[in-house]
Design a protein around this nucleic acid. Structure first.
Lengths: 294, 294
DNA sequence: TTAAAGCTATTCATATCTGCATGGACTGGA
DNA sequence: TCCAGTCCATGCAGATATGAATAGCTTTAA
């Protein structure tokens, strides 16, 4: 077989891929943990190697040429294959030592996981943990994390998911705030109250009203996408927020705003990539998380 | 986006791919134009990087581990994508300078192409030519050549093919040999003659007999897969062979064995990869070949 | 049994690549 | 207009990878 067609420097192709997707050499360098001059030289070298102009240097900005766009498609295919290489490699690795990356929503990462991770560290000191607190669903398919703690079932078939349990969440506010609005006894008493909203507030309104409340967007004067900021706003008396029951009840600053109201139930799903479950390390952490969370 | 999954060294993946396919580090090194120590170190480094044992070192030989086999599939996918990158890159390159690789059967490479290549070199001194004389159909899809001169129409849809002309081929032998078998006048007179065979002699027998001869495998005591050796055997009087008309008639050492017999007609197809036809250089050479051959 | 050919692993000098520091250029906002 | 932020290009020192040479091993053939 003649290998002429793959003799070009594959790392340069990778440099081109990340540069094109990130939009700049600097961003690509940050993403790859390299420096911008290195990336720049690699891309230039690829252009010379393939004898194709990939980027148009318009002042500071790089713009893909039509040729570059054409090539990008195929380099993306290389990238996807590379992702599979990386994934199955991690899956094949039976080494218990190494690092593992867990992603969870802020509230879980801050209150639910720390004791579990502590236990894990004691049991397996060889495993390093990276914890990504993010409310946007990380893409496990692209290996942004190894294991995800989510409140919904993933749809991608390449992921395996396990429903751990259902967590009841309730409305909380400071005693001071509840006093200010007259210690509500019924759902109607909350019609004029201030609630802390998330970024997808309309979904939240719908959920609340299905439980018997009667709220509109006017009840959400403050919004934040951060669960932790949400919780802080509640604890500092700016309004009513929704928090998992065990976290809320453990906080002396607040109390349930309407204990008679049925809780909103959030499931907790543990998710990992199918390929990764063949890794001893991932399986160990996955099983321990499943154990401890339930 | 997090690029952790493609951060590993892609050149090492390439080293692994070629090593696995070629079967040894040394062979892979030859194929890639590198040295064996380099390939060996790259493969070892990949094993450490991915924390997977790819090869089992059994004495001198490398044997893929199950994990390595698993990974190989995905690395092969990278390789295919890389081939596409290389192909479209060459297609995008509008630079007329550069090298081009033409494959043809030995007989064409030796007698048909030299004057045309000479003309091409004069017209475009910037284009370097690599001429691969091979009777096994080179795989244009894998980019073993840029342009192929073939005697059959390629089936792959990603190739474009142009039928240049039909070349009549006739039976030739030395006068001395023809005298020895009594200057045959009819097809029957050849029933006991010696013919030079190719490796696929049964196909050849079928073709001859369709023209009115009545041969069996016993008529082919000598076989060679090489067209040039075939032609030399004929010129040195060892038997009757089949050669394109213009080549045979131009050779004073031989004459047609049975001029009344209808010629076997071989088409000449010019073939190139679809992607490559967008390259100025390839198109130029392709068109010149088409012109000159017809 | 021996010789030859093939393979991999190691050593060391060299060539290449990388990162750091810096300069110059462009953009957006005050 | 100026300034801060962001970007790409370049020079240079140090880190890294590469190739040539060699040694040691295994297989094959005589």
């Amino acid at each position: 077989m003649d290998w002429r067609s793959i003799k070009f420097d594959w790392n340069r192709a990778r440099a081109f891929l990340v540069t094109a997707e990130e939009g700049s050499l600097s961003a690509a360098a940050r993403a790859l943990g390299m420096t911008q001059p290195t990336l720049g030289r690699q891309v230039t070298a690829l252009e010379q190697e393939l004898d194709v102009v990939l980027f148009e240097r318009i002042g500071q900005r790089l713009a893909l040429t039509p040729s570059g766009l054409e090539l990008l498609e195929h380099v993306q295919a290389m990238g996807e294959a590379a992702t599979h290489v990386s994934l199955t490699a991690s899956g094949q690795s039976q080494n218990i030592e190494g690092s593992i990356c867990i992603t969870a929503s802020e509230i879980h990462a801050a209150y639910l996981l720390p004791p579990i991770i502590d236990k894990l560290r004691r049991a397996e000191p060889g495993i390093d943990i990276e914890l990504i607190a993010s409310n946007s669903a990380s893409d496990l398919g692209r290996r942004e994390a190894d294991i995800a703690v989510r409140s919904f079932r993933p749809t991608q078939p390449e992921l395996i998911a396990k429903k751990i349990k259902e967590v009841p969440a309730r409305l909380y506010a400071t005693t001071h705030y509840l006093k200010k609005i007259g210690f509500p006894k019924t759902a109607e008493d909350l019609n004029e109250a201030d609630f802390i909203g998330f970024d997808k507030t309309d979904m939240l309104v719908k959920g609340y009203n299905e439980l018997g409340l009667n709220l509109t967007l006017k009840n959400f004067p403050i919004q934040t996408e951060s669960h932790l900021v949400h919780w802080e706003l509640v604890k500092q008396g700016l309004g009513i927020g929704i928090v998992p029951e065990d976290i809320g009840d453990a906080e002396p600053l607040v109390q349930q705003a309407l204990p008679t109201l049925a809780p909103i139930v959030f499931p907790i799903w543990l998710t990992a990539h199918r390929e990764l479950k063949t890794s001893r390390r991932v399986r160990l952490v996955f099983d321990l998380l499943a154990d401890e969370l339930s």
